[in-house]
Design a protein around this nucleic acid. Sequence first.
DNA 1: ATTTTAAATTTTGTATACAATAAATTTAGT
DNA 2: ACTAAATTTATTGTATACAAAATTTAAAAT
Lengths: 225, 225
Amino acid sequence: MPSKPRTAKRSSQISELIEERIAIGVYQPGRRLDEAELAESFAVSRTPVREALIQLSSAGLVEIRPRRGAIVAEIGTRQLCEMFEVMAELEAMCGRLAARRITEAEQKALQAAHQACENARDANNPDSYYRLNEQFHYLIYAASHSNFLNEQTLILHRRLKPYRRLQLRMRDRINSSFDEHAGIVEAILAQQGELTADRMRAHVVIQGQRFADLLASSPMLGNKS
Amino acid sequence: MPSKPRTAKRSSQISELIEERIAIGVYQPGRRLDEAELAESFAVSRTPVREALIQLSSAGLVEIRPRRGAIVAEIGTRQLCEMFEVMAELEAMCGRLAARRITEAEQKALQAAHQACENARDANNPDSYYRLNEQFHYLIYAASHSNFLNEQTLILHRRLKPYRRLQLRMRDRINSSFDEHAGIVEAILAQQGELTADRMRAHVVIQGQRFADLLASSPMLGNKS
DNA sequence: ATTTTAAATTTTGTATACAATAAATTTAGT
DNA sequence: ACTAAATTTATTGTATACAAAATTTAAAAT
C-alpha cells in the first residue's frame, strides 16, 4: 500500500509516515501519539514505533514527556517567532552562497521553478503554489553547495511545515510572495550575494510576521505565551 | 557512581554518557559502537542503548548504517568547514541579539567569564581555558534571549566538540582567542549589534580556518574529501 | 596459492514479555 | 453530595526472545 517499499529500517519508514501525517495536519499539534495505537495502525510492534517517535522528538516535531507519552509538538508563538528568526538567517545564508556558487543548470532550474510559481499564482491555486514555492526554496538551499547548510535548513523547514500551511491562505500573500521571489531570482542571477541574503531574509521575516499576526488573532493552536 | 541520578529515561542518560565519551575522545570518530558491548558497559539491556544511539544519530554525533551498526560520526574536512560556516552565522546572530537584549546581570556574568578566561590564559592552562571559553560562549548564546537560537547553537556546538579539542592546542591560539573575546565583550557592552555579529563571526571563522589547516597537514582522522 | 563458494557466527532489527509508573475508577469518609 | 484515599486499569520503559541480514571463517575448486 505505501508508496515506498524502501530498503531502510522500518522505524525510519514509520518516522516518515508519522511526519507526513503531522505535516498534512492529520495529527495536529498537541495530539497524543499512542504507541500501541500507532503500532496497530502500521501493523508493527511498538518497538519500531518508539524508535520513530524518538527520531521525531530529536527533529523537534514530537515532544516526549517521560513516562507520560508523546504528543505532536506544540510550539508557542514566542518560539515560533524565534524559529522564523533563525530560519530567516539560514535562508539568507543559503541565498548568499547560492548567488556566488550557482551553476548554469541550477539557474535554469530556478527560473523554471519561478515560472511554475507564476503559473500557480495566475491560476489562483494556493495548494499548487504551496508545493511549488517549497521547490523554489529547496533549489536555493541546494544551490548554496553547502550540504550541511542545506540539511539544516531543510530540517528547520520541516519543523515549521505544520504551521506554514495555514499562513499562505492569507489574502494577497501569494502575490507578494511571488514578487519577493522575483527580486530574489534577480539578485541571484546577478550574483549579488549580500543583496540576495537581504532579500531572502526579508522574505522569510515577512512570512514569520504574517504568521505571528495570524496566531495573535485566532486562538487556534494551543498557543501558550 | 554516576553524578546524575536523574528522573528521566535511562536511554537519555545513556545518550549523555556516550556523548560524553565521544566529546572527551574515548570514542573517536569512526569507532564502532557495538550495542551489546555498550549495554554491558552500562549494565542495561540493548533496548535503551539502541534508543540512545538513535538520539545521538539525530544529533549528528553518531552514524547508523542500516543493518551494519553504528559508528561515531566521522566528518570530512569539507563538511567540517561547512559546519563552521553555519556555526559562525549562528554565533553571529547570538551576538547581535545579545548586544541588544543583554541584562545587567548577564553583563556582569559575561565580564566575570571573560576575566576567568584571562586568568586561565595567564596561567597557561589550555584545559582550563577550553572549559572557560565554552562558558563564555554559552553566556552569549543565553543572552540572545532566544531559547530556540540558544538550543540550536548548543546542538551544533556539541557536534563540533569532538573536533574542537585538538584545535586549541595550537600555538598562540589561546592568546588571539582571548583578544577576540575582548573585542566581543566590548561590542556587546556598547550594545553594538552589528559590530558584535561581525566580531563573533570572525572569531568562529578563524577557528574554522585554523582547524582546516590542522586537518590538511595531518592525516589524523579519517578525513575523506 | 588464490579465488570463489558455502557454512557458521555474530550482530542488527523486530516482536513479545514483564516491570514500573501514571491515569482512571471506585470506594470510603466527612 | 463532595472530597480524598485506595485500588484498578492502562501505558510507558526495559528486558528478553526470536528472525533476518551481514560478516567472518572454513572449505572446495581452479
